[in-house]
């Protein structure tokens, strides 16, 4: 083995995996390049944007702030491992509430949101916004994301879409350009 590389053994999405990883890699880079799980994204690589968030040894972490070599022996879940082929209720809620556009922040948002509703079954909007304060979205804005998390929370009674349809615009008239 190259002296600048390490044998990395992790439990990734339920399976024991190993790879020879360049010691200079961040965990997010090893996950994407050596373990081929591209759910975690490289956004800022400074710990600000949260797009690289994964579940590591039971807690959510920003994988750009971890050295890959330091993750040896860890149990890691990426977006690829959060469900078994079906969308989770949280993913369904993001879909229903139009809570993503480009999708770059989505993987990290899902981990932060799931972490919240696992701990707080019926969070307030303030708790939701606090929970995603380490995750940046640069296209959807946050209202629809907050709606989705509120909707997916197991203790929540919110089941209807909060976003008004075009027909329900403020003046009650159709917002269609042909009207």
């Amino acid at each position: 083995m190259n002296p600048g590389s390490d044998e990395l053994v992790i439990t990734l999405n339920g399976a024991r995996r190993d790879a020879t990883v360049d010691r200079r890699k961040l965990l997010v880079e090893a996950l994407r390049e050596d373990f081929e799980t591209t759910g975690p994204k490289v956004g800022c690589a400074t710990g600000d944007c949260g797009a690289c968030t994964v579940l590591m040894d039971g807690e959510i972490r920003k994988s750009c702030l971890e050295l890959a070599v330091a993750a040896n022996g860890s149990v890691i879940t990426t977006l690829e491992g959060i469900s078994d082929g079906q969308l989770t209720p949280l993913q369904e809620a993001f879909w229903d509430e139009y809570a993503f556009q480009c999708g770059f922040c989505l993987s990290g948002m899902l981990f932060s949101a799931q972490d919240l509703i696992d701990r707080v079954p019926n969070p307030t909007d303030l708790e939701i916004r606090s929970a995603i304060s380490g995750n940046l979205c640069r296209c959807t804005g946050y209202d629809t994301i907050v709606n989705a998390i509120r909707r997916a929370a197991p203790g929540s009674s919110a089941t209807t879409r909060h976003r008004p349809s075009i027909e329900e615009s403020e003046d009650g008239k159709s917002a269609s350009p042909s009207s």
């Binding site: 710990g47 949260g50 920003k62 702030l65 932060s112 929970a131």
Partner: peptide, 10 residues
């Protein structure tokens, strides 16, 4: 502390 739950954990 700024940075979300992740930074609290890390």
């Amino acid at each position: 502390v700024t940075g979300g739950r992740q930074i609290l954990n890390q």
